[in-house]
Amino acid sequence: MSEKNYKLVKGLLLLFVGIWLCFTLFPLYWQIITAFKSPAETNLTVPTFWPTEWHPENFVSVFADPGNSKALLDSFIIATGNTLASLVLGTLAGYAFARFPKQAGGENMAFWILSNRMFPPVAILIPMFFLFDAMPWGTDSHLSLIILYLVFNMPLATWLMMVFFRDAPRELEEAAYLDGFTPLQAFWRVTLPLVLPGMVSVGILCWIFAWNEYLFANLFVGSAVRTFTIVIPTFTHGSQTLWNLQMAFSLIAMAPPVMLFIVLRRYMVRGLSLGVVKG
């Protein structure tokens, strides 16, 4: 490619990326500036694109209602509990499908599990409600959502872990058997470390799904337990919405997944490329 063409292509690329960024970042920008505005400024007929007056205290007044901080905690408990359960179950099931496909039910069984992830969740909304209502822990508890979200996260975890385990050479385990390890020890010491980056990215995906879930949470929980996703709409009273507080609260709710992503970014990239790059 000539120097001139190269510059042209690079220019077009920058232009495209610029336009794309405007579209994706604008809502975020709007969310941030709104979170710092006064209630009056959020309701102007001609909106301001930069707060005339900064109100960082919005981030404190959000927590005037102690229920709001508890909602973040509830969400955290549910997302983390569900992620751990998904990882444990998905890792074991994925290992079984990868190493003992016949005994585990074969390709069809594995695909059936994945297909559980594909149907529209709303289809099982009502049956699930009655099912959980009959359980000793009821619907309005951490445990109910931790278990319910397994319906979506466990198939994903199982399938992805199966792919990672397939890519982990079987001979490493065999070498470990010969070196004197039991199958369980070989799994722990040799195979699991190999798929750890993959496991971390699966964990992040599960956690983010559970953290963000609204539909089921809205129906299942609400008094003893409240997730932040069902708290966000409560900033609307009648015809009036406290836009600044709502935006401040959602910004706070966005922080954990963003931080999680930044901290585990290295693992995430390695995990997602595990299936692509072969040693």
């Binding site: 490493l172 070498a175 190999l194």
Partner: peptide, 13 residues
């Protein structure tokens, strides 16, 4: 028994 594998089977980490 001790075995050396055709594919080496070294523990990568």
């Amino acid at each position: 028994v001790a075995m050396a594998f055709e594919t080496y089977a070294l523990y990568p980490n």
